[in-house]
Every structure is written in C-alpha cells, then in structure tokens.
Amino acid sequence: MTTQILISGFGGQGVLFAGKFIAYKGLLEEKEVSWLPSYGPEMRGGTASCSIIISDEAVGSPIIANPDVLIAMNLPSLDKYEPACVPGAKLFLDETLITRKVTRTDVEAFYIPATQLARDAGIPTLGNMILAGNMIRETGIVAMEGVEEVLKKVISAKHADLLQANLHALQIGYQYTKEML
C-alpha cells in the first residue's frame, strides 16, 4: 500500500516539521518513505507545502499530484489542493483558519479547530501537530504508539524542551472528536 500525504499552509505554521515527523514515524515502522518540501524565496508567511509518501514498496516519484490525504492549514491550500485529491481522500482542515467547508462530496473531511485548540492548551504554535495527531487517528497510516521516540529524532537537542509540548499537541489531536465540543 502507498499513501500520499500533502501538508500545506503558511510558512511558519510548521508544515515541513509536521511532514518530517510523519515521514520519520513511517521510517521507524520500517516503511519506505519520502519527504519533499516546496522550496522558495519566501521564508515566513508565504505558502509552504510538503509531500510525504509512505509505502510498503520502494517510493518511485516523490512528487504528489493527487493526494490521498490532505492537511490544509489555510484557505489557499484548500482552494488549491481540494480539486487534486483522489476520490475517497481524507482532508484535515484547520477549522480556526479555514472558514469554508469542503465542496467535494466524494472525499471525507475532518474539521479540527487546531489553532484554537493549540491556543487553549497554551501551545499556540502547535496546531500542525494537533492536525497530525488527528490524521494518525483517522487514517492509521502510522501508529500513535512510539511517537515520543520519533519526536526525539526530529526535535533538535537545542529545542528538547519542546518535546513534551509536541507530544501534548499530538495527543490533543488524536483524542479530538466533534462530540467533545
């Protein structure tokens, strides 16, 4: 099986980091993975995206044209990538920042107020990991078990103090359901 995940949002929202986390989790589950960022002159505030492929077989092209999973952290990302998703795709949207609903009916949409949840939890910059946590729960592409080990790999020693916050964000996302509200 091969899953193509696209994460997109503003630069600075942690799009690339969330992608790296997911790819590394796949790696530690002994899957084949690739991670490909968009790169450009904009460092903060512009649009950033990354493509992650997790597969049981060697990854061919690392470029994703039609994602199976889309994590959209802003409206331009949803506008751009919603039409590209495969039928049956799962879309995870930051409901705090994206005010519209998904228009396609052949995909499954999950609305998570990630930015709001992050603010409420005192970890305002970690909406990305809340969305990642929810994606893990709803897709099962990778397991929640062992995420701490992955965080140790992707968080540099300099920022080791952020490990618990990231773990917390993942858990918030993983546990989040509409019924909670």
Partner: peptide, 10 residues
C-alpha cells in the same frame, strides 16, 4: 537536481 537535494528519504 533541486528535488534530490531537498527531499528527505531514509
């Protein structure tokens, strides 16, 4: 190329 340089793989 840019893809090879920027992409991460195991």
């Amino acid at each position: 190329d840019g893809t090879m340089g920027q992409m991460m793989e195991p």
